[in-house]
């Protein structure tokens, strides 16, 4: 555990001493702020219209009308930005030869991977945590349901954790950071749209494709549904990504 933390601490420091973390967080916040503002303005105008009719007035729901679309937008931004956060994790070490320091230290490969993974998770948590400030406005002027919002954030965190694991894996494959980012983005996008293929599939394949789709599991969570099936999906996605990373690194050394 101490070794994992040693690696993680160094990586977090690297993220925050270089512009990477600041740029990623700032751009993320600007975009999320914009989407939040748009969603809130739209909600405002809709609410004024709907309030005039007692039947519709009961259906005004800030969670569904602001948070659900916001979480979807945030997930897309994460899909675009997390590969940029993870691309350097192993690629850079390999390119600059610093992997030789790591792999000749009394630290296991698994600990190195987990340390790097944890560091990227911390940046993700900071990105998501800071967007929480936006809720000040909704809570000041409305009464959104807290559990539903937290559930959405949990979904984003789990999905981001899975994305980061994929990023770590692709970073271990190449010493070129751009290649690592493009591969991560391509793979994640493919997992995202797997459910599109499910529309034309039938039987078992439909279920399999739907289950594998990143989007399908996330959609439930933004609606306030917490299903262990979804949690298990993201956790196993992340585990599989890290496991593959371990195999890649070990096999490269044994080749």
């Amino acid at each position: 555990m101490r070794n994992i933390w040693t690696i993680a601490k160094k990586e977090i420091k690297t993220y925050f001493t270089s512009p990477i973390a600041y740029v990623v967080i700032a751009v993320f916040l600007v975009l999320v702020g914009f989407f939040f503002y748009s969603a809130l303005s739209w909600f405002n105008s809709q609410a004024i219209q709907m309030a005039q009719n007692p039947y519709y007035a009961q259906q005004i729901n800030i969670n569904q009308m602001v948070y659900t679309p916001l979480f979807h937008n945030m997930s897309i931004i994460l899909l675009l930005m997390l590969p940029l956060l993870t691309m350097r994790l192993f690629s850079e070490e390999k390119k600059t030869g610093t992997d030789e320091l790591l792999f000749t230290s009394p630290v296991n490969v698994g600990q190195i991977i987990l340390g790097k993974y944890l560091a990227a998770l911390v940046v993700l948590a900071a990105m998501l945590g800071l967007t929480g400030l936006l809720s000040v406005f909704t809570f000041a002027y409305g009464n959104p349901e807290v559990p539903q919002i937290l559930n959405g954030y949990l979904g984003l965190l789990l999905m981001g954790a899975a994305f980061i694991a994929a990023g770590v894996f692709f970073s271990s494959l190449t010493e070129n950071q751009i290649v690592s980012a493009i591969l991560t983005f391509g793979a994640l996008l493919l997992f995202w749209i797997l459910n599109w293929a499910a529309y034309s599939a039938s039987g078992m394949w439909k279920d399999v494709l739907n289950y594998l789709s990143v989007f399908q599991h996330f959609d439930d969570m933004t609606r306030g549904i917490l299903d262990t099936k979804d949690v298990v999906y993201y956790v196993s996605f992340a585990f599989f990504g890290l496991f593959l990373t371990h195999s890649v690194i070990q096999s490269r050394r044994w080749r």
Binding site: T17, L101, L102
Partner: peptide
């Protein structure tokens, strides 16, 4: 690995760290 100190041909340095931060990191490692 605990009893060996190793200087590879390409010195494994992290350019964005200070010398003492880097050495502290290696000490922890």
């Amino acid at each position: 690995k605990r009893v060996i100190g190793y200087l590879p041909e390409v010195v494994p340095l992290y350019p964005e760290m200070t010398v003492s931060d880097y050495l502290s990191f290696v000490a922890a490692l």
